[in-house]
């Protein structure tokens, strides 16, 4: 019963993130929306390895039931990448704000022609 609820939650989170990405023009909010999007995926990854009443995958006894290790490794990778890209985007946003004086994407240059 747990899994479908969490999966639905992740899908709704994705929807929220896209709503935010389309409606907002504030750079920091765009970054936050992307973070929400990443969190939704991470939720699903961790859920894929979950088993009720299983132990953490540190094999001290052979007969115990453990959760799957692979999704945890994948989620660690995805978390690190998401954190780095977030930091970079924030750095660029601060730079753009300092050099161009606005944090709204639509008030930046409209390059035409």
């Amino acid at each position: 019963m747990l899994a479908p609820t969490i999966l639905t939650g992740a899908i709704v989170l994705t929807g929220c993130a896209f709503y935010g990405l389309i409606t907002h023009r504030h750079m920091i909010r765009l970054v936050i929306c992307l973070n929400i999007l990443d969190s939704a995926v991470l939720l699903v990854i961790v859920l894929l390895g979950y088993e009720p009443d299983a132990a953490a995958p540190i094999v001290r006894q052979a007969d115990l039931q453990y959760v799957l290790g692979l999704p945890h490794a994948l989620s660690l990778t995805a978390i690190v990448i998401s954190a780095c890209t977030t930091a970079l985007m924030l750095g660029y946003a601060v730079r753009v704000h300092r050099l161009r004086g606005t944090v709204y994407v639509d008030r930046l240059t409209r390059w035409r022609g």
Binding site: L21, M27, L30, L34, L37, D38, V41, T85, L88, M89, Y92, A93, R95, V96, L99, R100, V105, L108, T109
Partner: peptide, 20 residues
């Protein structure tokens, strides 16, 4: 310059949406 960072920000946001 400011234009370069602006381009980079737009490019990065789009690229990350694609990656997601």
């Amino acid at each position: 310059d400011g234009y370069a960072f602006e381009s980079a920000f737009k490019y990065l946001i789009a690229g990350l949406i694609g990656s997601a």
